[in-house]
Design a protein around this nucleic acid. Structure first.
Lengths: 189, 189
DNA sequence: GATTTTTTTTATCATTTATCAAAGTTTTAG
DNA sequence: CTAAAACTTTGATAAATGATAAAAAAAATC
């Protein structure tokens, strides 16, 4: 079950077998059902998840009950509530499986152990932070520069699976608009 | 001139004098004038800047000529076009001094040298990435969850100096709205 | 300190997006 | 398989924001 993660890590790093075995040993397999909540608001993120199959999203719930999705991780991507995980403080967002799927979970303690015992893990963490930063960066850019229709067209272009695999409701919450607006945008294309 | 950076680094890390001297030696002092451009679109970010005084912003210029500000660094913060700096690829944004000020510049080559020769520098870089990520994160959150007025109120609360020290035009471009809209929002308060 | 230039405010009108409501459609659960 | 629940679409209306223009205020330049 960890071979998929092994391949992913080997593709990114010059990691030897000893290191790889040690790293993989810390991950725990976890099966999740669609809509299953992995982390609630005000809890502290205890795990970093690697998505083997399916997808997981991080989202806020606003005062008025509306959802706003910050990030969606598909296969071979990591997800957690990073601010909470880094500082081990309560989060203000939720983590939820958006499809049935399989994950590998790394606990915060294991994460810290890896940081101090496996040299390459620090490089891994840097890479993860860079990717997370880049992802947030282009997403922020899209919000600053584009209107809803432009953001939708952009999403289709660079992340078509998001529209194919997820509900309109989820896509709308990712685009920062209502379901009704998304529905109208789709008609206009 | 580097003592300010020294204090900043010592506050964040358990860094010894040898390491500190080596790190500081790589930074070059630079005086900048308000509105001075430090990096142009399509150029590759060659420097990471530490702001001693004044402020520096990163912004896009849209097709229609409107500006959209991604980030503004005040004293004791670092700024660069990180995606470009990390990958040494052309950037799609500009860096500009928003006030007269003083900077310390670290070249990409020096940055890489530090990464491979000063152990603590890797931890520094991780910290920088974490801060950059966190900054982008709350900013993205504000765009997804809030309308323009809410974003403005939020900015006053957590970043009052931005409104005090920068022009309406710059603040508006940071909030992702037009100057006219900002002007109206201010009246409504 | 007078004069340009830039920035900010105000007004009007157009466009985008939200809100509310209702009717279809699809999915889920028993 | 059927009933209930959830999701999607459509319509009407309201609110937020943008675009354009012009006046007022502030800042920069000589």
């Amino acid at each position: 079950m960890t071979s998929q993660l092994a391949i992913h890590l080997q593709n990114s790093f010059d990691i030897n077998h000893q290191e790889l075995d040690k790293v993989l040993g810390f991950f725990k397999y976890k099966k999740v059902l669609k809509n299953e909540i992995l982390l609630n608001k005000n809890e502290t993120a205890k795990h970093l998840y690697f998505v083997l199959s399916g997808s997981v999203r991080a989202f806020f719930i606003e005062e008025d009950g509306l959802e706003a999705t910050r990030y969606i991780a598909f296969e071979n991507n990591f997800i957690t509530s990073l601010n909470s995980f880094i500082k081990q403080e309560p989060t203000n967002e939720y983590l939820q499986a958006t499809e049935n799927g399989e994950l590998l979970a790394l606990s915060y303690d294991s994460f810290k152990t890896l940081l101090s015992t496996v040299a390459i893990w620090k490089d891994f963490y840097i890479k993860q932070l860079e990717v997370a930063y880049t992802t947030n960066h282009w997403r922020l850019e899209s919000f600053i520069k584009m209107d809803a229709k432009q953001r939708y067209d952009y999403l289709i272009e660079i992340y078509p699976q998001m529209i194919q695999r997820l509900s309109n409701k989820t896509v709308a919450s990712y685009l920062g608009i209502t379901q009704e607006s998304l529905s109208r945008i789709k008609v206009k294309r």
